[in-house]
Simulated scan of single mutants.
Amino acid sequence: MEKSRAGFWIRLGANILDGLLLGVPIAILAVIFGLSVGDRDTINTVISVPYYLLLPVLWYGYTVGKRFCNIRIARKDGEKIGFGTMALRYIVGFIIVYGLTLGIAMIVSAFMVGLREDKRAIHDFIAGTYVTYAKPGD
């Protein structure tokens, strides 16, 4: 069930790819249309929240960056990723916990993924998930 945990560097690479996939087109549009920083932030939110919440639910735990890196989000109990799981992982884990701690919890999470045998970060514990190289159904 819990095979081939993905570690820090591959997860970082997948996150960078996702950030580029979302950020570059938004930056280009911002320049073309002369958008303010506030408008860019709004567009980024409108695009990134559904991307990180819905795409893994619809695509077996993958985002484009994770798929490119051959890793995916999986539930610890083996069940299919659902909207509730992703809401816990992304909204509670990333936005609330990492936001409230001004990024300190994100640094702790990076060390957790790098040093813990199970490679789980704070948001993984909150949502009951882990990131794996295993394909869906393995």
Rank of each mutant, 00 (worst) to 15 (best):
Y51W: 13
D77S: 01
L22F: 01
G38I: 07
I104E: 01
A6F: 02
H123Q: 13
I122K: 08
A87M: 15
V37F: 13
G114N: 14
G114P: 08
F8D: 01
R120D: 12
L12T: 13
T42I: 15
W9I: 13
W9P: 08
E117V: 09
A14Q: 02
Y60E: 15
I95G: 00
S48T: 12
Y52P: 00
S109G: 06
G84A: 13
G61D: 11
R72K: 08
H123P: 10
S48N: 06
K66P: 00
V31M: 13
G23M: 00
I104Q: 03
C69T: 10
G13I: 09
L88D: 05
L115T: 11
S109L: 10
G78Y: 06
E79W: 03
A6L: 05
V113F: 06
F83P: 12
G23T: 02
L20V: 15
D39W: 07
Y51M: 07
G103H: 08
G19S: 04
F94N: 09
V57C: 14
I122Y: 03
K119C: 13
R89S: 04
T42K: 09
G38V: 09
I107C: 00
K80P: 10
I16N: 06
G82T: 14
G99F: 03
R40M: 13
I122H: 07
Y90M: 01
A30H: 02
R89Y: 02
L12E: 08
L53M: 03
L58E: 02
V97H: 07
